[in-house]
C-alpha cells in the first residue's frame, strides 16, 4: 500500500519540479503579439503578469504602461507608474515615442481622479509640434479640439467662438477619418453651444460626405442635415438628404416623419418652380 501511494509522486517528481520552471521561462520570453492581443481583449492583468516596466524592449515597456493604465483598480498611483515609463519612451522620434506621448496626455485628460485638462492640452500640442505627421499627434489634435470646444479656459469668454479654436486645429489634421471626426464634433458642438447654423452645418455636411461615421451617428447625421437644411430654407439640400434617408432606412420609425417632410419640401420647390 505504501509503495503504491508513493510511486506516482516519484514518477512525476521531475515534471512537478520542471513544470513551474518551464512556465516561468515561457513568461520571460514573452511574445509581444500575445501581450497586445491580451490588451485588445481587455485583459491588462495578463500583461502585467507577463511583462515588467524595465523590460529590455521599448515595445514591451509601452505594452506594460498601457496595461498599467487599463488595469483595475485604476488609481492615481498606477497612473504615475505608467507615466514614468511613458516619459522615458517619448524621448525619441519614432512612432512608438509618439504613441507614448499620446498615452501620457490621455492620463491627464481621462484617467486621473482629478483630470488636468490644461496639462493634457499642453501635451497634445507638444506632440503635434514635435511629430506633426504621426497618427498619434493627429489623433491628439482631435482630442485637443474637443477640449477647446467644451472646456479649456483660453476660450471661455461669454462671446468666445469656441468653434474657431477647433477649426484652427482642423486645418492641421491630414488623416481624412480624423478630419471627419473633428468636423462631426465641431458641427455637434455648434448646436450645443447655440451657434448660428451657418457656422456649424458645413461641418456636419463635410463629415457626412467623408462617409463611414460609426453607429447611430450616421443615421442621425443624415436626418440632421435634412432637417437643419429645411429650417434654413435650403429646400434642395433638404430634399437630397430626406431622399437619402428613405433610401437607406425605409422602414425605420423616423421614416413617417421624413416622408411628410419630404412632401412639404417638394411642395415648396414646386412653388419656386424647381420641381
Amino acid at each position: 500500500m505504501r509503495g503504491l501511494s508513493v510511486y506516482p509522486a516519484r514518477k512525476f517528481l521531475p515534471l512537478l519540479i520542471l513544470g513551474p520552471l518551464l512556465a516561468a521561462g515561457a513568461a520571460a520570453s514573452a511574445d509581444p503579439d500575445r501581450a497586445w492581443t491580451a490588451l485588445a481583449d481587455n485583459r491588462p492583468q495578463d500583461v502585467l503578469r507577463q511583462l515588467r516596466p524595465d523590460a529590455p524592449s521599448r515595445a514591451d515597456r509601452l505594452a506594460w504602461a498601457a496595461a498599467r493604465i487599463g488595469a483595475q483598480p485604476a488609481t492615481d498611483g498606477n497612473m504615475r507608474e505608467a507615466e514614468a515609463v511613458l516619459v522615458e519612451l517619448e524621448q525619441g522620434t519614432d512612432e512608438l515615442a509618439a504613441e507614448a506621448a499620446y498615452l501620457r496626455a490621455r492620463i491627464y485628460q481621462l484617467h486621473l481622479n482629478e483630470p488636468d485638462f490644461a496639462k493634457a492640452a499642453q501635451l497634445y500640442a507638444g506632440l503635434a509640434q514635435r511629430q506633426p505627421g504621426s497618427h498619434w499627434a493627429q489623433l491628439g489634435l482631435v482630442k485637443l479640439g474637443l477640449l477647446k470646444l467644451y472646456l479649456l479656459p483660453d476660450v471661455s469668454g461669454p462671446g468666445a467662438d469656441r468653434l474657431a479654436a477647433a477649426e484652427v486645429l482642423l486645418a492641421r489634421i491630414q488623416e481624412p477619418l480624423l478630419r471627419r471626426d473633428l468636423n462631426l464634433q465641431i458641427g455637434q458642438a455648434g448646436i450645443a453651444l447655440n451657434q448660428p447654423q451657418a457656422r456649424f452645418l458645413p461641418h456636419l455636411i463635410a463629415a457626412e460626405q467623408a462617409g463611414g461615421v460609426t453607429g447611430n451617428a450616421q443615421e442621425d447625421l443624415i436626418v440632421q442635415i435634412g432637417v437643419l437644411s429645411e429650417r434654413g430654407g435650403d429646400w434642395a439640400r433638404a430634399r437630397e438628404y430626406f431622399e437619402k434617408y428613405l433610401a437607406a432606412y425605409p422602414l425605420n420609425v423616423r421614416a413617417y416623419a421624413i416622408r411628410r417632410k419630404l412632401a412639404e419640401v417638394n411642395h415648396r420647390l414646386a412653388q419656386e418652380g424647381r420641381p
Partner: peptide
C-alpha cells in the same frame, strides 16, 4: 466606457502594424 478604449486602441494599432 471611454477609459478602457485607450488601451484597446493602442493595442489594435500595435497588432495592425505587426
Amino acid at each position: 466606457t471611454v477609459r478602457p478604449q485607450d488601451v484597446r486602441i493602442v493595442a489594435n494599432a500595435a497588432l495592425g502594424w505587426r
